[in-house]
């Protein structure tokens, strides 16, 4: 692994809602090294997307969100302290994002060529002709047939899989050091999902870019991630290398998640082991560990205050008072 690229420390993000202040991300600390793939896993509302948006500096007034505290250090710069002008030079250039919905994240009235060329012109000061030439090159790289001719097409002329390839081309345009992909293939069919993810993996490896892969699919994580962070109700409950996490999950929530997948821990056709209850309401979290109401090991201490993330072995952290 390369050297430290991104370091998030003690990040908390709150949103003002009708039901009061909701802390969508609470005391999150994680890091990404150069060239590695970190998966952030969690169910809806666990805070994985908000974490990603915070890294990009996209939590703003418009959505009533606020970074309450924390530090996001990228290539040695604290992103939270930077103004918009600086952030704009970083976004799309040093850090790029791939969103879930390739349909709504492309501008429907601009040609594909213009959209792929835009970051190149903006960040690298290339001329129109140069930028279009590079755009064609990028589309070829993401395996879009007849790339040069398709520059003048509009997004609706592309299929879902092809649009996601375009998004990847745009993300790669400036050879960013970090790509954040938020559920990049959830909207796609499985055979296309496999194509897109291996393409993404291959191209990030080639460019030595790091990848943060946000997903809820533990199969995707197993195939593509080097390390995994598991989130629950806004907090990180466990971080470990992928192999370690699957072989030796140490947080009761991670264990429950692994057990509830058919065919992983259980015999085919046997009764699935479930996590009883439901994910908590963020506006009304329990005082202690948010998982304690569903946890079979819950003790008195769990109800007092949330446990902090602690290192339990090399490259394995968890936030749990311990059940052993």
């Amino acid at each position: 692994m390369g050297k430290r690229l991104l370091e998030v420390e003690d990040l908390s993000v709150t949103f003002r809602t009708d039901r009061g202040i909701v802390r969508a991300v609470d005391s999150v600390s994680l890091h990404v090294d150069e060239g590695e793939t970190l998966a952030i896993v969690g169910e809806s509302g666990s805070g994985k997307s908000v974490t990603a948006l915070s890294i990009l500096g996209l939590i703003g007034d418009a959505d009533s969100g606020r970074i309450e505290r924390g530090r996001i250090s990228f290539e040695g710069q604290d992103l939270i302290q930077q103004n918009d002008a600086v952030l704009r030079r970083i976004r799309g250039n040093r850090i790029a994002m791939i969103f879930q919905e390739p349909m709504s994240s492309l501008n429907p009235v601009l040609t594909i060529g213009k959209q792929v060329a835009e970051p190149i012109r903006l960040h690298q000061g290339a001329s129109r002709a140069e930028a279009y030439e590079q755009a064609a090159e990028l589309l070829k790289k993401v395996a879009i047939p007849d790339a040069a001719e398709r520059l003048n097409d509009f997004p609706h002329q592309f299929s879902g899989g092809m649009r996601q390839r375009v998004m990847i081309a745009m993300a790669l345009a400036c050879r960013p050091k970090l790509i954040i992909a938020d559920e990049p293939t959830t909207a796609l069919d499985v055979t296309v999902q496999a194509q897109i993810l291996s393409l993404l993996k291959e191209l990030t490896r080639e460019a030595n870019s790091a990848l943060i892969l946000i997903t809820h699919d533990l199969g995707v994580v197993a195939r593509y991630a080097d390390r995994v962070t598991v989130m629950y109700a806004g907090r990180i409950v466990e971080t470990a290398s992928a192999r370690e996490l699957y072989a030796n999950p140490r947080h009761p929530y991670t264990q429950g998640l692994m057990e509830s997948i058919p065919g992983l821990a259980t015999e085919v056709g046997a009764r699935l082991i479930t996590i009883e209850g439901q994910p908590p309401d963020l506006a009304n979290l329990p005082r202690g560990c948010a998982f304690s109401p569903r946890c079979k090991y819950s003790q008195d201490v769990c109800l007092q205050k949330p446990p902090t993330l602690e290192t339990i072995s090399q490259d394995h952290e968890r936030a749990c008072y311990g059940y052993e």
Binding site: M162, A194, G219, Y224, Y246, M258, I261
Partner: peptide
């Protein structure tokens, strides 16, 4: 066969042994 191969198995050990053979194109 292609469909079964395209779906990742939630186990890094299995995945690391598995050869990924992608079918081309889309439906």
């Amino acid at each position: 066969q292609a469909l079964l191969n395209a779906v990742p198995v939630p186990d890094p050990e299995v995945e690391s042994r598995r050869e990924e053979i992608l079918i081309q194109g889309e439906v």
